[in-house]
């Protein structure tokens, strides 16, 4: 079973994402911010990260840059999932190593399409 780390400071979003991704047969771990997510990744790298942008302590963008510097940190597929829906943010995310980008609000079809796009389904 593939693993996905869901990183979002909203417990509601984490719950919705968990439900969708478990339906797509992913094993889910959760983190509330970039710092927690980075600790999780230092312990064990997931196959995928569903990543919010705006979070306390360490935001999604800083987490992504830190993740990509970890040994093997280029392996997880990172899918941003954020309300930062402008081209400038998308371009920054791609430049930092994001694989896909979901603009909130999202639904199951969009999550499924994006995870297919990165080759995890």
């Amino acid at each position: 079973m593939k693993t996905c780390l869901v990183v979002d400071d909203s417990s509601v979003i984490r719950k919705v994402a968990r439900r969708i991704l478990e339906g797509l047969e992913f094993a889910i771990t959760e983190a509330e911010d970039g710092e927690q997510a980075l600790s999780e990744c230092q312990r064990e790298l997931p196959d995928a990260v569903l990543l919010d942008w705006n979070m306390p302590r360490m935001d999604g963008y800083e987490f992504l840059r830190a993740l990509r510097r970890l040994p093997g940190g280029d392996r997880p597929k990172v899918v941003f999932c954020t309300t930062e829906n402008d081209v400038a943010h998308i371009a920054r995310a791609l430049h930092a190593g994001a694989n896909e980008y979901i603009m909130k609000p999202f639904d199951k079809d969009i999550v499924e399409a994006k995870f297919q796009e990165v080759g995890l389904i």
Binding site: I90, M103, F106, I110
Partner: peptide, 20 residues
């Protein structure tokens, strides 16, 4: 719409071939 461009369209194509 935002929904329409997120189903099947890779994000790099969105950035490259669309104007927001």
């Amino acid at each position: 719409s935002q929904f329409e461009v997120q189903r099947g369209l890779p994000i790099n194509m969105l950035v490259k071939y669309f104007v927001q």
